[in-house]
Computed example of a mutant assay.
Amino acid sequence: MSYRITVEVNYAGIGEVARSDDVRQMVNQAADRIAGAVRASVGPDVPVTVTEYTTDREAAAVTIADRRGLGLQARDGVLTRAASGIGADVRIR
């Protein structure tokens, strides 16, 4: 016996949740944890910043704000390792 199931996606509702304060807090906490792990890896003389922003959802960027940042990521993968270290699913686009 087969059943037909219809699923209707509420895109407006999903967007509302993705831009909510609860999601913003979770995203920012994750970014702060990643930034802390990066700081521990690169040392106190290398600035690491967290930038919070909103697109169609809440987001945050962790940046090694130093000319050595590209090399640290390319050679050691400090950002990737830090994100993976908190359980983030890191993928190459």
Score class of each variant (00 low, 15 high):
Met1Leu: 13
Ser2Lys: 15
Tyr3Val: 12
Arg4Gln: 15
Arg4Asp: 15
Arg4His: 13
Ile5Tyr: 12
Val7Thr: 10
Glu8Arg: 15
Ala12Pro: 11
Ala12Arg: 13
Gly13Ile: 08
Ile14Tyr: 11
Ile14Glu: 08
Glu16Leu: 12
Val17Asp: 10
Ser20Met: 05
Asp21Val: 12
Val23Ala: 00
Val23Thr: 04
Val23Ile: 10
Arg24Gly: 04
Arg24Ile: 02
Arg24Leu: 04
Arg24Val: 01
Arg24Thr: 04
Gln25Leu: 13
Met26Leu: 11
Val27His: 01
Gln29His: 06
Gln29Gly: 08
Ala31Ile: 08
Ala31Val: 06
Arg33Ala: 08
Ile34Glu: 00
Ala35Glu: 06
Ala35Gly: 06
Ala35Trp: 02
Ala35Cys: 07
Val38Gln: 01
Arg39Phe: 04
Ala40Ile: 04
Pro44Cys: 06
Pro47Leu: 10
Val48Ser: 08
Thr51Arg: 12
Tyr53Asp: 13
Thr55His: 15
Arg57Ser: 09
Arg57Thr: 05
Glu58Pro: 06
Ala59Tyr: 01
Ala59Thr: 01
Ala60Thr: 07
Ala60Gly: 08
Ala61Lys: 14
Ala65Thr: 14
Asp66Pro: 09
Arg67Gly: 14
Gly69Tyr: 11
Gly71Asn: 08
Gly71Ile: 02
Gly71Met: 07
Leu72Asp: 02
Arg75Asn: 10
Gly77Ser: 01
Gly77Ala: 01
Val78Thr: 00
Leu79His: 04
Arg81Cys: 04
Arg81Leu: 08
Ala82Thr: 03
Ala82Asn: 04
Ala82Gly: 06
Ala83Ile: 02
Ala88Thr: 07
Ala88Met: 13
Asp89Met: 01
Val90Thr: 02
Arg91Cys: 07
Arg93Lys: 10
Arg93Trp: 04
Arg93Glu: 09
